[in-house]
Every structure is written in C-alpha cells, then in structure tokens.
Design a protein around this nucleic acid. Sequence first.
DNA 1: CCAATAAAATGAACATGTTCATATTTGAAT
DNA 2: ATTCAAATATGAACATGTTCATTTTATTGG
Lengths: 245, 245
Amino acid sequence: MANSSPDTIDNISDNGRLTPKGQRTRLSILEAALTLFAQKGYQASTMREIAQAADCSLGLAYRYFPSKEDLVVALYDNTCSELRDYVAALPKTSMATRYTSTIRNAYVRLGPYREAFAAISSVTMDPSSHAGVLSDRMGYLRRQGIDVIRVVLAEAKDAPSAKDLETLTLLGYASYLLLLLFWVQDRTEGQRATDKLMKFVEETIGRLRPLLNVPMLAQPLTQLAEIIRPVFWGRDEACIPNPSV
Amino acid sequence: MANSSPDTIDNISDNGRLTPKGQRTRLSILEAALTLFAQKGYQASTMREIAQAADCSLGLAYRYFPSKEDLVVALYDNTCSELRDYVAALPKTSMATRYTSTIRNAYVRLGPYREAFAAISSVTMDPSSHAGVLSDRMGYLRRQGIDVIRVVLAEAKDAPSAKDLETLTLLGYASYLLLLLFWVQDRTEGQRATDKLMKFVEETIGRLRPLLNVPMLAQPLTQLAEIIRPVFWGRDEACIPNPSV
DNA sequence: CCAATAAAATGAACATGTTCATATTTGAAT
DNA sequence: ATTCAAATATGAACATGTTCATTTTATTGG
C-alpha cells in the first residue's frame, strides 16, 4: 500500500521511470492511435480498437495514456520538438520568411494527420479539458512553442529590439495557433486558401516590419500583446523565461 | 412501419411539427439542461440528471435533442436570435460602438453558461463534427450571424460603401468568432482580459475607420476577406446573399 | 538460484452518452 | 363514441471512455 512510486505514468515527461520494454509498448500504442486517427478520425477510433491495433490490452493503453486526449497531446508534443530542430537549422533571412517557413513546415509535418488533427483541434480548444492548449497542464508545451517563435524572430537578420521581441513573440505565437486553426478548417482543395493566406501573411509582415519604428503602429501592438498575455499564461507562470533580457 | 414523417426531430427548425405539448416539453428539457450546466458545468451534468430535472425519461430528452451537444447548439441558436433583436434596436452610432456593443451583449447573454459554451466551443471548432460552426449543417447559423454583423455595420452612421460593407462584414464575423473563442479561453477574474480587449477593439476600429479611404489599407483588407471567404462558405453556397452587388 | 519487489499487463466492472423497440396519449375523421 | 394514425413518452440495452483489483513478467539483492 505504501508505494513511493506513482501508480499512473505522467506521460508529459517521457523520460520517467519507463523500462525499454515499456517505452516500446508506449510507442506502439501511440503509433497505432495516430494511424487510426488519420484513417477514421479521433471520435470514430475507440480505445479498444487502438489497444487491439497495438496488440495489447485496453487497460495497458490507459497505463501509458491516462486518457484518450493524452494521445493527442503526445502528437502535439512530438511536432513541437521536431519544429524546434527545424528552426535551429533555419537560414537567417527575414522575420517574414522565417516565420512563414516555420508554419509551413508545421503544416507539412502535420499533413498526414490533418484529419486527425482536425478531429482533435476540438480537444485542443476546450479550456475545460486538461489537454487544451491554454490549460495549466500544457504550460510546458506553450512555453516550448513560444520559445520556437522567439528563436524564429530573434535569429532573423531584421530581428527587432529586445523589447519589441517579446511583444512580437507573443503575437506571433497567437497567430501561429490561429493559422493552425485556419488550416484545420480549410476544406478547399489542397488547402489552397491556407496557401494564399500564408503568402498574404508573409507579404504583410514584410511590409509592416519597417513601420515598427513608428510609435503609432508599435504601441498598439505592445498594448495588444499585454492584453492577451494573461490568457496565455496562468498567473503563477513567468511571462518571460529570461527576465535578464 | 411505413412512416412518412421522420422519427427524429430536427432541432434546427423549432417551428417544425411540434405539438404545443411537445414544445413545452422541449423547453422544459432545455431549461433544465441550461440550469444544470450553469450550476455544475457541462461535463458534470449527465443526460440522466437533465431528464430527471425536466421530469421526463432519458429517451424523451433524446427525442428533442439528438445529442448532448445539441442542447448547447440550441443555446447558441437562441442567443443568435436574441442578438438579432438586440441589433435591430441598436442606436445608429459608429460602427466601432455598434460592433463592440453587440459582442459585449453576446457575452452577457452567454455569461451564465460560459462553461457549457466553453465545453462545446470545442465541438464548434471541429470541422468533422456536424455541429461545427463551419460545417454545412450549421450554414443557417453562419448566415444568421453574418446577417447580424452586416446590419450592425450597415446601419451605423459611418457605414462604409456597399463594396467595403461585404468585406468588413466577413472580417467582422470572423473576428466575432475569434472574440468568442478568446472569451471562452479567458480565465482571468471576471474575464477582465476580454474587457480590455474589447476596449482595444473599439478604439482600433474607431481609429482605422477614416483610413478605409486609403487604398493601401483598404486593399489588403479586401484581399484578406477574399482569402478567407471560401473557408466560411461551402462551394455550393452563395458568397454574398445579394448577387446584385 | 531464489525470493522479493517493482514494472508491465490483463480484463472485468462501472458510468454515461446514445439507440431502439415498444407503449401510451392525443387528436381528428367518420 | 369509435377508430386509427401520428405525436409523445418510456426504459432496457448497447457502446465506449475510464477505473481497478488482480495476475504475469522482469529485475535485483542475497
């Protein structure tokens, strides 16, 4: 009874106390789930099917993924990590180009799971779900995503001042979420509307960049960022990871 | 067995073949549900509880509301109708004031059911769900919402030209959805962030309105509207109710 | 090698959204 | 009033996410 180790696995930190065998099993369940999600959508895929496809029992699936939603969280998590690597190798061109390239890359990676992702974008948008993008539990994912955007902007050849950087990073992250939402909703052939939108965004950022020095434009941006910031960060979390900047 | 009438009620059109008694029952179920949602949230309220509170059987609840989600769709529907009335009586002030007043009014109406609304905002964002805002089945709700926004803008004392009106209507409706999304996600005390955002929006619209005549601002807006329009309308639906324009 | 302890794995049981065959009530026509 | 069809109402049964007591397998200390 007196057990020092938890009886449920915290899937947030994969590193945890997972035997190699355990990790293998966990992965096979995740892969089975993503395949099924891509094939028949999130709702239509039952946990029993997933377990069967992963060749394990129903209960075991729940050992590694405390809920169905957590499978989605894992997909999110993977994509985030991959994006970080992509961004690290990104040429130091303009903010506009770096930003849109990064998002386009996310589209490509998530492409095969677009339908699955669409099916779960619902979960992602549910604030009462512990898997919602803005939920406390997903703080680490937000932080990761925001960090990616910050690097995208900070390493550009036309990077803004340190002060503007934090403003643009938050707005850039919010826009990133919205662009994902748009992509998911875009039922035009080959998501052509999203393509056009990305071109528009790239052009617009390029045009607006020089105007950042005009206070009449820069100030409202800062203001907007400060308004939406508390919604992205719980009150206990630091707004800026590096207070030194 | 050979039954010419459908065996499920299309809750979309309340008017339908519903006896006065049926309408009363439907209403009592809806009221019980909304009360429970407001009291203990959407998830925590079971259909059995709702039926019990409405003093009817479980099966009957499903006769009038094919799914739990449809209870919230009904809430959304009601709010839309009420908004239309509200807008009809709105003083002919500026676009900025009329627009933000309308949305603030929606917040007030939905306030008691914020959590319930949050719980289905997910569904609302799910393109694979037949209850998604952008799904074909909800076309009538989109049209209704867009019509409301059009009236808000068209009846303002600083109403734009007919051509700009369609652009601004679509952008205004899209923004309306986003502002609802923000409100739902806003966990600050009393949704203070949303309050601030609305002030910001009102001010910004007011500032930008005179610049509508500057092509360099107006043209990108039109461009943006045309990019997102196909995502809001299925290919079979008319983009503009009045093709004469 | 053997116990003992922890990890991995199982499947039955439960809660709740949903469906359906059936029963009851209502209303109108004869 | 009787009858019949349609509307209204019922609750048992089903599907699926989730939990849990239990069993099996792996690992470690002696």
